[in-house]
């Protein structure tokens, strides 16, 4: 695990130094000194990230392999990864649906789908909460805190 982290950190550092900083950090041409340039700080951090990655890699090579922690907290890894995939889809759909359906209706769907995903033992309670909680939060944020909650194109709440 430490080796993967080290390689990941070094790859991140290389990506930052070779691609991200040259292309996505702009600096004026008349900067009097390199230490005052907007490029200086990201470059320093990228180099230090690379060194940290190298350190992690070095430590992992010194560590006996059998001693490295192994996570085996789920019985069926395929099912666990599938659930994570579905959760990622739920998050993506949430971002897509919020401006169209409105926050309240989207939140109801999010609640119900997450409860279904983690196989709740209390489906009726979950269904009641899926309706009640977003409505309660809407009342608080819209009418007490004065937040403009998105209402969507279809059913608008008072």
């Amino acid at each position: 695990m430490q080796m993967k982290l080290g390689i990941g950190a070094m790859a991140t550092a290389a990506f930052l130094l070779l691609i991200a900083i040259p292309f996505w950090v702009s600096s004026p041409s008349n900067v009097p000194n390199i230490v005052l340039s907007p490029l200086f700080w990201p470059n320093i951090l990228a180099v230090l990230t690379g060194f940290t990655g190298a350190g992690l890699l070095f430590m992992s090579l010194r560590q006996p392999r059998a001693k490295q922690p192994v996570h085996s907290d789920v019985d069926d890894k395929l099912a666990a990864f599938s659930r994570l995939g579905v959760l990622a889809v739920i998050m993506g759909v949430t971002l897509y649906a919020m401006p169209r359906l409105g926050l309240v209706w989207t939140a109801m769907l999010v609640f119900a789908s997450v409860a279904f995903l983690i196989r709740t033992n209390h489906p009726k309670t979950a269904l009641i909460c899926a309706v009640a909680l977003p409505l309660f939060l809407y009342l608080f944020f819209a009418h007490v805190a004065g937040v403009a909650i998105p209402q969507g194109h279809y059913v608008r709440l008072p």
Binding site: A107, V110, F111, I118, N121, T125, C129, L133
Partner: peptide, 12 residues
Amino acid sequence: PRGVLFPGVMVL
């Protein structure tokens, strides 16, 4: 129930 609590946390 955790199956009700965590979806609630997500909505919050």
